[in-house]
Simulated assay, not measured.
Amino acid sequence: MLTNQRQLHYDRQIATWLLLCAAVIFGMIILGGVTRLTGSGLSMVEWKPLMGIIPPLSEEAWLATFEKYRQFPEYQKVNRGMDLAGFKSIFMYEYLHRVLGRLIGVLYFVPMVYFAMKGRVRAGLMPRLWILFFMGGFQGLLGWYMVKSGLVDDPRVSQYRLTAHLGVAVAIYGYMLWLAFGLLFPGGKGTHRFANLAMWVAVLVYLMILSGGLVAGTRAGYAYSTWPLMGTSFIPPGLYEMSPAWLAAFEDITTIQFNHRIFAYFLFVLVHVFALLSWRKGLGPRGTVAMLLLLAALWLQVVLGISTLLLHVPVWLAASHQGGAVLLLTAGVYCAHVLRRQGG
């Protein structure tokens, strides 16, 4: 039977491994955004879970791979006339994205088995680690399901599938952080009275990210490059004019961008109210740090979001905006954990 001190040591090892996996997933999310923004996501028209890790290694192999790409709508309707050098450029983004996904699988599975066989996983944690593993496998399948939607007549992936793909990636990331924080900070001071509100803030940040997935999937971010107005008015014409009206929230670019902005305003106000109420009731040193990190991440994300709009969605800035959203979620999850387990 493990002593308490030894189990805490093993907990820190597992937490460090989970945080490393989360950091790589963070990079994966950024790379996924760059892949989408550079129009590279449909360059690999086949899914080979095992052999797909080997790229074309000869000029003949590259020409054969390029010829397969030329049979699909993206080349025929968007990139007609692209040469082999141009194809190699977009291919490598998608290739690296897929290889990194496989690397994450190995980086997660092998240590998990090692820790389990050595008896270092505390009671009750193993089922949660398996949940993360199966979520990762599902994410791989979902990624190909998303790509397939763009290999038909319309050379764009479905915004629904893209949002689901992003949502599962971020859910894996957030859950992994929560488990790691639980191992590093097992608690002891009770629950803060605003712990439930902190959880809701984290959930709303997650929903905000899904809203951003719809913006990305429909390219709604290009529709209005003005702020705080959308064009010449705060409330643009044409909102919810689709039939049925609710469908506009998912398919009309004006409505999608407007909803994303309004969601951002609501979240901005909510986080500041939450911070003020929490400070008045007392937070303690760790709670204060968590709240400051949350506010800093929020302001950074606001600046990145507005800049992305005004500069008409440059790749580097849009990718930073996506990364900023994940940083905001990180701060939200940490703040929720502190108030739930370490609150005053």
Rank of each mutant, 00 (worst) to 15 (best):
G140A: 08
T163A: 13
I104M: 07
W144G: 02
L166S: 02
L142E: 07
M176P: 00
Q139Y: 11
F91K: 02
L142M: 14
I90C: 04
L142H: 08
S89I: 06
G105Q: 04
L183G: 01
G190Y: 06
R102I: 10
G81M: 06
Y160K: 13
P111G: 08
I172R: 01
K68Y: 09
Y160Q: 13
K68M: 14
S158A: 11
S89D: 10
F109A: 15
A169G: 15
L162T: 03
K148G: 03
V168C: 06
G105S: 08
Y95E: 08
V170S: 01
Y95N: 07
Q139T: 10
A180Y: 03
L125H: 04
P186Q: 11
L107T: 03
W200G: 05
F72Y: 15
V168P: 00
G136P: 00
K118S: 11
M117A: 15
M117R: 15
V110L: 15
V106Q: 09
S149D: 09
L132H: 03
L100A: 12
A116D: 02
M82I: 10
Y114L: 15
A164Q: 11
W178S: 12
I90H: 01
G167Y: 01
V110C: 10
S89W: 11
G105F: 02
L166V: 06
G101I: 01
Y160D: 14
G167H: 03
L96K: 05
L184K: 10
F185V: 07
E74G: 05
E94P: 03
K118N: 09
Y173G: 02
R102M: 10
A171F: 14
F194K: 06
A180L: 08
V113Q: 04
R161Q: 08
M135L: 15
W200T: 10
R193M: 12
P155V: 09
Q71S: 12
Y175A: 09
F194C: 05
K118T: 12
V157W: 02
G136D: 01
A195W: 00
V113P: 01
L96Y: 14
V78T: 12
M176G: 12
R80K: 15
G174V: 03
W178N: 09
D153W: 13
Y145F: 15
N196L: 12
G188N: 09
M176I: 12
Q76Y: 04
A198S: 15
N79P: 07
V110N: 09
G105R: 02
G124P: 05
H165M: 09
F115V: 10
Y93N: 11
M92Y: 13
F66N: 04
G182Q: 04
L162N: 02
L197Q: 01
L132S: 04
G105L: 03
A180H: 05
G137V: 10
L177D: 01
Y95G: 05
R80Q: 14
F185P: 00
Y69E: 06
Q159D: 10
Y69N: 06
L141V: 15
L96D: 05
Y108M: 06
A171K: 07
S149T: 15
L179W: 01
S89V: 07
Y160N: 14
P111V: 02
T163M: 10
G119P: 00
R80S: 12
Y69S: 05
D153P: 06
L100Y: 02
G137D: 05
R102E: 06
V152K: 13
G81Q: 06
M117E: 10
M135D: 06
F194H: 13
Q76L: 14
Q159W: 10
F138Y: 13
